[in-house]
Simulated assay, not measured.
Amino acid sequence: MLRKLYFILLCFVLQSCAAQSKYKLIDAEQETVIKENYSYYLYYPEGYDENPEKKFPLLLFLHGGGESGDSLVYVKRNGPPKLIKRGKKFPFLILAPQNPEKKMWWNTRSVMQLLDTIVENNRVDKKRIYLTGLSRGGGAAWEMAVQYPEKFAAMAVVCGMTPLPYASWIDKKMPMWVFHGEEDKSIPISESETMVSKLKSMGYNVKFTKYPGVGHDSWVPAYDNEELYKWFMEQERQ
């Protein structure tokens, strides 16, 4: 009963905060059915409050291993949360959960339960839910694309790795954009090259951007690329 009351209170807080300013970043925590606690950021774009009937796209961002832990401060180090901290404004909601386990992979079932809760309690266009992740979060993005093939309108993976057989399980209607640094010593670019080559041979819609002279931190130029966000906004599930 206490958990149910907590969930109801959390939903009320989220909706109340949504009416206070044009855009914001919320620190919150959601306990899922399978007992995984996720702290997360939830960003609302400008204009969210102006038309209560309008629905907005949502971007799910999964961070890398270095940002795991018990402090949301770590999540601000890279990707969209870092850009939001600097003052960048996005045209969609951004959900950025934190993996509490520093040495373990993402629990993608828990992530999906959190995502579904956020979608149901906010004005999200379910045809325009986007997925992105870097490094360990990039691997989790590949996994979620396999586990939930009809969920996402588009996916961008930055220096992630994935088993090659995953290629056969990803929805062919979902556009993908892969980024990788050519000098990556942590996750070799061959991980992305092999997967992209397989996907292209099977007729998938996939773009591949390589960064010469860039190591594992290819997420810096990838997420600084304005074309990425324009590309996301052009995608919609049919």
Rank of each mutant, 00 (worst) to 15 (best):
Gln15Tyr: 00
Gly47Cys: 06
Ser39Gly: 11
Phe90Arg: 03
Ala96Gly: 07
Gly133Ile: 11
Ala154Val: 12
Leu14Ile: 15
Glu67Leu: 04
Ala96Met: 07
Asn37Cys: 04
Arg136Val: 10
Glu36Ala: 09
Thr209Gln: 14
Tyr40Ser: 06
Ala222Cys: 11
Gln113Val: 00
Tyr166Phe: 15
Met176Arg: 01
Leu9Lys: 14
Val111Leu: 10
Asp171Phe: 00
Gly69Lys: 06
Ser21Tyr: 00
His180Lys: 05
Leu131Arg: 07
Trp231Val: 09
Ser16Asp: 02
Leu62Ile: 13
Pro165Leu: 07
Thr108Phe: 03
Arg237Asn: 09
Asn78Lys: 08
Tyr130Leu: 13
Asp49Lys: 10
Asn99Ala: 09
Glu67Cys: 05
Lys207Glu: 14
Lys54Cys: 01
Lys103Cys: 01
Gly139His: 08
Gln98Ile: 08
Pro163Gly: 03
Tyr44Gly: 01
Ser68Ala: 15
Ser168His: 09
Leu131Pro: 09
Val124Asp: 03
Asn121Met: 02
Thr162Tyr: 00
Gly138His: 07
Asn37Thr: 11
Glu183Leu: 11
Arg3Lys: 09
Leu62Gln: 10
Pro149Met: 08
Glu67Asp: 11
Met155His: 01
Met155Ile: 15
Val111Gln: 12
Val196Asp: 05
Trp105Thr: 04
Met161Asn: 14
Trp142Ile: 06
His180Pro: 08
Leu199Tyr: 13
Arg109Met: 07
Thr162Ala: 15
Ser201Ala: 15
Arg86Gly: 02
Arg237Thr: 07
Leu2Cys: 01
Val111Asn: 12
Phe12Lys: 13
Lys230Arg: 13
Met112Trp: 04
Pro57Ser: 08
Asn121Gln: 06
Pro57Asn: 11
Glu227Arg: 07
Leu10Glu: 10
Ser39Lys: 14
Pro163Thr: 04
Asn51Cys: 07
Gly69Pro: 05
Leu114Met: 14
Pro81Gln: 05
Asp27Asn: 13
Trp105Ile: 03
Ile118Cys: 09
Gln238Trp: 02
Val124Pro: 05
Glu67Thr: 11
Met155Val: 15
Val196Ser: 05
Tyr223Ala: 04
Gly160Met: 10
Ser197Phe: 08
Ala145Phe: 01
Thr132Val: 12
Gly139Thr: 10
Ser201His: 07
Pro221Arg: 05
Tyr223Ile: 04
Trp169Glu: 15
Tyr44Ile: 00
Arg109Ser: 11
Ile8His: 08
Leu59Gly: 07
Ala18Trp: 00
Leu131Val: 13
Phe92Tyr: 10
Lys24Leu: 00
His180Leu: 12
Glu191Tyr: 11
Val214Glu: 13
Leu60Ala: 10
Val146Ala: 15
Gln15Arg: 14
Ser16Lys: 05
Tyr44His: 01
Gln30Met: 14
Leu199Phe: 13
Tyr204Thr: 12
Val75Asn: 02
Glu29Pro: 02
Lys55Ala: 02
Ala28His: 05
